[in-house]
Design a protein around this nucleic acid. Structure first.
Lengths: 104, 104
DNA sequence: ATTGACACCTAGTAACGCTAGGTATAAGCT
DNA sequence: AGCTTATACCTAGCGTTACTAGGTGTCAAT
């Protein structure tokens, strides 16, 4: 599968993962891998910048935590992020249905 | 819907449209609009370069036609294009299922 | 004569996932 | 003690690709 396939859909998936509950970057990567059935095994260089983007856009907020000697930046959904997640889910359904219509 | 959403999926859809039967660029644009229920109303600057890419990759082949005074470049699937279409359909199903899994 | 639909083209831009490097802690093995 | 693996973070630069914004030309309708 080409790398470009993900473009424009990663944000929605990250919001969805963090929407389940606050999570740090590494955990987001694991969740994406598990919830996608192993399809999305994303490098850190993909996910970390995306998290920063989402925070800069005000859809996520972060705070530092320390767990067993390791520092973690834990992200949570902001109000705007929660609202954006709803929109993105709708966008995805519309998009997927449209692609199905063309490929059918 | 963001423009990036399409990335990596346009090729598959163009192959699918041309796979139904040879078509020229403008007709491809119309087919994409119709078969997607109006969701994909793509500018020429998106579709024409994509057609050129696919031809350069050997998945499409083209020939000039003249219909009622207007010249058209008509594209058809090559053997490799047909095979690629099959792969891309599979990729899409895998991808869509994975995204569904994460967003659910 | 002018507008709109048809039909093609391309240079440049913006977005973003990824590569490839880097730092640092903790646990387990030899 | 040294090494590897997993955890956990970061970023500069690259490559791909959809789109913008322009251009050319034909034909039908007003």
């Amino acid at each position: 599968m080409k790398a470009e396939a993900l473009k424009g859909h990663l944000d929605a998936m990250i919001l969805a993962v963090v929407g389940v509950g606050p999570a740090h970057g590494y955990a987001v990567i694991e969740q994406l891998r598990e919830r996608s059935g192993g399809v999305f095994d994303l490098p850190e260089g993909t996910v970390y910048p995306a998290l920063h983007r989402l925070e800069a856009d005000g859809l996520l907020a972060s705070s530092w935590e320390t767990a067993s000697g390791r520092r973690r930046r834990v992200y949570r959904l902001t109000r705007r992020g929660k609202s954006a997640l709803g929109e993105r889910r709708g966008d995805w359904q519309l998009f997927a249905q449209a692609v199905d219509g063309v490929l059918a």
